Amino acid sequence: MVTADGATWPGSHVVGADGVRSTVRKRTGASLEGSAAEGFHVGVDVADEPGGTPSLERVMHYAHPGADGRGVLVVPYANGFQVDVQSRAGDDPDVIASRREVRRWLPALIGPTPSERITAISVYRFLQLIADDFTDPHRRVLLVGEAAHLFPPFGARGMNSGFADARAAADAIATGRRSPAANADAVAAFATARRAAAEVNSAAAGAALRHLRPTGAVARLRRRTAGLLAPVVPRFGEWLEHAPYGPRTVMSGTGN
């Protein structure tokens, strides 16, 4: 393999783990196929208050009154948390995600927040994309992680399936190096299995997305009814808690 700076790297295989804009994938001729969800999300990273007690609770608001009924997800992480706000029809990302506008609406969601605690603001859209092939015609290139697929961030499906991709790629390469005659079949089996796993994950993420952004009256009524009944029927609350992450399916033999 020859890189842009002219350096040469000899080897038996190349693992493309260079993300959604993967140069390795493009050089194999593979392309991403799929769709983008309507609307966008605004993610605001907030540092923990100095000397305060960090919250370890993840909270999902399906219709936060402080956000004019928009969906809001608060997710803690090391030394801070992220506030994720779901857009609705008519929202302009250049307006709602501007630092001035974020400073205006953020306190209604999490309380008074000094500007210096806002460490990052991002806008993203949910994509469901899968490469049409996870290898090259010569069975020497193996695509893993976001070079091979991109899912909405529900249940860390992209990251977790990336680990499984890498393990499967390593196994296929080991087989090919032990027995060159078996390489083509081993790499082809990797590509077939991991693409099938990506399709399972994409379908699960799609189910979660339809729950978060219901387009039909029946789906909206189901979610609203569950919210009304959750205080007295715990299983409805459990459904509302878990549904945003999609079905917990595992495809036998793929590791998902």
Rank of each mutant, 00 (worst) to 15 (best):
G52F: 10
A156K: 05
K26H: 11
L56A: 11
H64M: 00
G71N: 12
Y62W: 11
V85Y: 01
D92G: 00
A63K: 10
F154T: 13
V24H: 04
L73N: 10
W105D: 08
L143M: 00
P50S: 14
R27K: 11
V144T: 13
V46H: 10
V85R: 07
F126A: 14
A63S: 15
R100Y: 08
G51R: 07
S122C: 09
D136N: 11
T119V: 09
G155C: 08
A131E: 13
F154I: 04
D132T: 06
E38A: 09
L150R: 04
D91S: 13
F134S: 10
A36Q: 13
Q128D: 14
P76K: 03
R125Y: 01
G51L: 06
G145R: 05
I118K: 06
I121D: 13
R27E: 10
E33Q: 12
P54V: 05
D68H: 14
P54L: 06
F154W: 14
D45R: 13
I96F: 09
G145F: 04
L127V: 01
E38Y: 06
I121H: 15
G52I: 01
G52S: 09
A37W: 05
T53Q: 15
I118N: 05
D132A: 07
M60T: 12
A131T: 12
R103M: 14
Q82L: 03
L106S: 09
V46Y: 09
S87I: 11
R100I: 14
F40T: 01
H149Y: 14
V46L: 09
P137L: 08
Q82P: 00
E101L: 07
T53G: 07
T113H: 02
S98Q: 04
F126C: 12
H138E: 15
R103C: 12
V46D: 10
V44N: 07
V144N: 01
R104C: 00
P152Y: 03
F81N: 07
E38V: 00
F134L: 12
S22V: 00
T119P: 02
D48K: 04
A131P: 12
P153G: 03
I110C: 08
R25D: 01
A89P: 02
H64Q: 04
F81E: 10
L143P: 01
K26C: 06
D45H: 15
S55W: 08
F81G: 02
F154K: 04
L56M: 00
W105C: 01
Y77L: 10
E33L: 08
D48R: 02
V74S: 04
R21A: 15
P76E: 05
P107L: 00
L56V: 02
A30Q: 01
L32K: 12
L127T: 06
H41G: 10
R103N: 11
V102D: 11
R99G: 03
E116M: 00
A108V: 00
P54K: 05
P54R: 02
R104D: 08
H61T: 02
A36F: 12
G39D: 03
K26I: 06
T135R: 10
R104V: 05
L142C: 02
G51D: 12
G80E: 06
G43K: 12
A97K: 03
I118C: 09
G66F: 01
R25L: 01
G145I: 08
